[in-house]
């Protein structure tokens, strides 16, 4: 039996979370001796093949016929392509989370969602209750797994190539399709929060939406994504899509910079697995300092512009 990985792509490029899913598949393959293969749907399938090959995938079942995203059409295609596998792995992106449950039902498989670790070929770590509890589960039978983004490293680049096994998708009754009508605001330069290596987040201490350029400028010089605390989102200063925390996004970047964030438990739940945490807060007793590797006790309105300037200078040299 084998391991199938959905190689999610957008604009002819494999998404980072899919590369991380390949790495998760490799770890399972090493523990079980199973063979692995990719499944791809992209207009420019050759581009995806070369990226997958470079990450050590030698076989890809794919199609360039589906040019528009419909989750139910993707689900049918992937389920058919994955029938030979006993483990099917998805990146835990919005698309992955939408398709994986449909594939699970089609294959009569068992779901293991949002994994953060692999102990054995069928023993996985998950996080429960908003990262407050880690759970180890053993899963029997055919499995469909989603992998939490930004947890697994990118796979080593092998310089290899992948062979294509073209599959023609079945047509479907249009009544059961959710048609992707339009991409509004397709901002390719914006870094997605859950996939970012560096995140700069602002809290109530930033004072108001008019001061947000402070956060955005620092994020820009770092090539980082920017986020916000729940208090800020609830106050309407920033959109909910930027919220980090238990009722927002779970992030674990290499560097998380918390600016004017006190560190409520539900915020910590969303970001405390970050590798390096930097906090800027004038309140020395703020709980964020309990998890911060670099805790700057000072006024953010002085510290952040200076930090932005210094990093910008460093990047230019």
């Amino acid at each position: 039996m084998s391991i199938a990985v959905f190689l999610e792509s957008y604009n002819n490029k494999m998404v980072k979370a899919a590369a991380e899913a390949i790495n998760a598949a490799k770890i399972i393959a090493e523990k079980t001796g199973k063979e692995m293969f990719g499944i791809a749907l992209d207009e420019n399938i050759d581009e995806i093949l070369s990226q997958a090959g470079n990450y050590g995938i030698s076989r890809v079942k794919g199609s360039s016929h589906i040019t528009l995203y419909h989750s139910s059409m993707y689900a049918r295609f992937i389920a058919n392509a994955a029938r030979e596998a006993d483990i099917v792995i998805f990146p835990g992106t919005v698309w992955g989370r939408e398709i994986a449950p449909q594939v699970t039902i089609k294959l009569d498989a068992n779901p293991v969602s949002d994994i953060i670790g692999i102990e054995e070929g069928n023993v996985f770590r998950r996080s429960l209750h908003g990262n407050k509890i880690h759970s180890t589960v053993k899963a029997d039978g055919k499995l469909v797994i989603t992998v939490r983004p930004a947890v697994f490293d990118l796979p080593a680049e092998t310089g290899g190539s992948a062979e294509s096994e073209p599959i023609t998708p079945e047509t479907m009754d249009s009544d059961t399709l959710s048609k992707l009508a339009e991409i509004l605001a397709a901002s390719s330069d914006k870094v997605e929060l859950t996939e970012a290596d560096i995140i700069v987040s602002g809290g109530r201490g930033v004072g108001g939406p008019d001061n947000w350029p402070l956060i955005i400028n620092l994020a820009e010089v770092l090539g980082a994504a920017h986020g916000a605390s729940r208090a800020v989102v609830d106050a309407g200063w920033r959109p909910h899509s930027e919220q980090v925390g238990q009722t927002g996004k779970f992030v674990s970047p290499k560097v998380y910079i918390a600016v004017g964030i006190s560190g409520a438990i539900q915020h910590l739940a969303g970001m405390s697995t970050s590798e390096i945490i930097v906090a800027v807060n004038k309140d020395e007793g703020a709980p964020i300092f309990k998890v911060a590797d670099y805790g700057l006790v000072g006024d953010l309105f002085d510290v952040v512009p200076k930090l932005t300037e210094e990093i910008s200078r460093l990047k230019q040299n």
Binding site: V94, K179, L180, E182, I183, E192, E195
Partner: peptide, 8 residues
């Protein structure tokens, strides 16, 4: 979705 808005 992943830094873009999708309309269905």
């Amino acid at each position: 979705a992943s830094g873009r808005k999708e309309k269905f």
